[in-house]
């Protein structure tokens, strides 16, 4: 379009536009785009943080494929992700259906379930570590004693690591999902239910054919963001399961997952090249999951 505005003033206006973009773009390029490219390069090297990086091609990735600890971390992550997302989403939906009213009882219940979302996450991890203390000074074992059970070494029993991590994740996250679902429920027109009732539809039929389908966008969002968050879990493992200064994954690596393993390789063993390869595996997983998330697709259509 031929603009009637003189060239110089147009330049001035565009100059201002670019100046306004500059702070964001400079930081974005410097601390995201460049590091991203750099981490891909590092994943093909033996960089250790001190010596110059030696290019080794795909060696790191080949080594990863045969690395038992990495496979173990992947398996643990898979179990954790499926467990926490499935249970967490179902409970979020259940809570939203149960407590979406405006009365004080419902509001208190919503606040109670939402509380972990606004509590310091490290404080929660320390709290769990203390609740799960291995002797009966801890809360969990005290409850075991009430029911005639014996002390359980909760955090030192390899088979319990993933279930405990799933439990902590569900406990801390279901209130957040609940808030999303409550908003989703509020957006469903009341008339649909009235019409269904007039037609004699049962409560279950209403739920099955009105509520559930109309909540689908919320469910997609809760599941996809839940998946992405679960793949990136770190401090639950690091704080609760750490057994010593250089241990990241807990007893026998029972709680080892992708990001804790990345930290272990990169920052306790200083194999920064190898850790970069792990970072890129994580990247590929999250990238595929994000593509599923319609958020980006819809945004691209809009511009």
């Amino acid at each position: 379009m031929a603009s009637p505005i003189p060239l110089r003033s147009r330049l001035r206006r565009y100059g201002t536009s670019y100046a306004m973009l500059l702070p964001f773009l400079a930081l974005f390029a410097g601390f995201l785009i460049w590091p991203l490219a750099n981490s891909l390069y590092l994943s093909f090297t033996t960089f250790d943080g001190i010596n110059p990086a030696a290019f080794v091609g795909l060696d790191n990735f080949r080594q990863l494929a045969e690395d038992d600890r990495f496979r173990h971390a992947l398996g643990n992550t898979g179990l954790y992700v499926v467990g926490s997302v499935v249970i967490g989403t179902l409970l979020s939906l259940g809570l939203a259906l149960a407590f979406n009213g405006t009365g004080w009882a419902h509001r208190i219940m919503r606040t109670v379930f939402f509380l972990p979302s606004v509590t310091s996450s490290i404080a929660l991890m320390l709290m769990w570590k203390w609740v799960l203390f291995p002797s009966d000074v801890g809360l969990a074992n005290t409850i075991m004693h009430w029911f005639g059970g014996k002390d359980v070494a909760w955090l030192a029993t390899p088979g319990l690591a993933i279930p405990i991590l799933v439990m902590m994740s569900v406990w801390g996250g279901m209130g957040y999902g609940m808030v999303l679902y409550v908003a989703g429920l509020g957006a469903i027109p009341q008339e649909y239910y009235e019409a269904a009732r007039i037609d004699g539809a049962s409560t279950w039929a209403q739920f099955r054919h009105i509520t559930l389908p109309l909540l689908r966008p919320v469910t997609t969002y809760v599941v996809v963001t839940g998946l992405i968050g679960a793949f990136q879990v770190f401090e639950a493992v690091y704080i609760v399961f750490q057994t010593g200064a250089n241990n990241v994954g807990g007893v026998l690596d029972s709680g080892l997952m992708i990001v804790p393993y990345l930290y272990d390789q990169g920052f306790t063993h200083f194999k920064l090249g190898y850790a970069s390869a792990i970072a890129w595996v994580l990247f590929l997983i999250i990238f595929v999951l994000s593509l599923v998330n319609l958020r980006a697709g819809r945004a691209m259509k809009e511009l």
Partner: peptide, 21 residues
């Protein structure tokens, strides 16, 4: 588009280069 695409990058991927920076 570049910014939207970057939302799919887990920030842990840039952890090591940013540490070096």
């Amino acid at each position: 588009l570049l910014i939207i695409a970057s939302m799919m990058v887990p920030w842990q991927t840039t952890l090591i280069p940013n540490y070096v920076i």
